[in-house]
Simulated assay, not measured.
Amino acid sequence: MSKHPELPETALRVARLLESLGHDQAIVMLPETGKTSAEAAAGLGCEVAEIAKSIVFRRLQDNAAVMVVASGINRVDENKVAALVGPLGKADARFVKEKIGYAIGGVCPIGHLEKTVMLIDQDLLQYAHVWAAAGHPHAVFRLTPEQLKNMTGAPVVDVALRA
């Protein structure tokens, strides 16, 4: 019998991965969609900035997925990301599903189908806890920025578009 019978299959996959990593926070199913940072924050009662949104690009040189885990209030500066990883193109829904393994709106920062180039927005480090998608548009999980760094192995960089 599953410990998480109520979770959709992709969120269940994330729950099992989190358990294997020793993460003790349960996946939360939002009553409304968490497809946008604002929707997720409203459902959780937290600041939009505390949402760790996953933005995926396609690296042109090798067609690799590039994921930026950014603060929910930040727009990602593609030029800053490209300066770190190489020229970028858009990642459509099919590319994200094939490379990462999740549908847009529920893209989790861990458990990807293929090796993903990862970057973490330095602005997330100012929060005690953040919330990340857990493989489904209604599923999220809570973690510290340090846990995010440890789970992904990603460098912390400045990726925000600044006025």
Rank of each mutant, 00 (worst) to 15 (best):
K35A: 15
T33A: 13
N74F: 01
A49D: 10
E146Q: 14
L7V: 08
A132S: 14
A49K: 14
A139E: 03
V81C: 06
E47R: 13
A103W: 05
A128E: 14
R94Q: 15
L17Q: 12
M118C: 05
S20G: 12
G86D: 10
V28F: 01
D121Q: 05
E32G: 03
P87C: 02
S2M: 07
A132D: 01
S2H: 12
I27S: 02
G43A: 03
I73G: 10
N63A: 14
S2A: 11
V157R: 15
E47T: 00
F141P: 02
K97D: 13
H112A: 12
G72W: 12
Y102H: 06
V117S: 00
N63I: 01
Q126R: 15
K80C: 07
P5Q: 04
G43R: 07
L84N: 08
A11E: 02
G22K: 12
A103F: 03
K35M: 12
L84V: 05
T36A: 13
G89A: 14
A70K: 07
A52V: 08
I100K: 03
A42F: 05
G105V: 15
T116G: 10
P137G: 09
L44Y: 09
N63Q: 14
V28W: 04
L60K: 15
G86W: 08
H138R: 13
G45R: 08
K90P: 03
V76H: 09
Q126N: 03
Y127G: 02
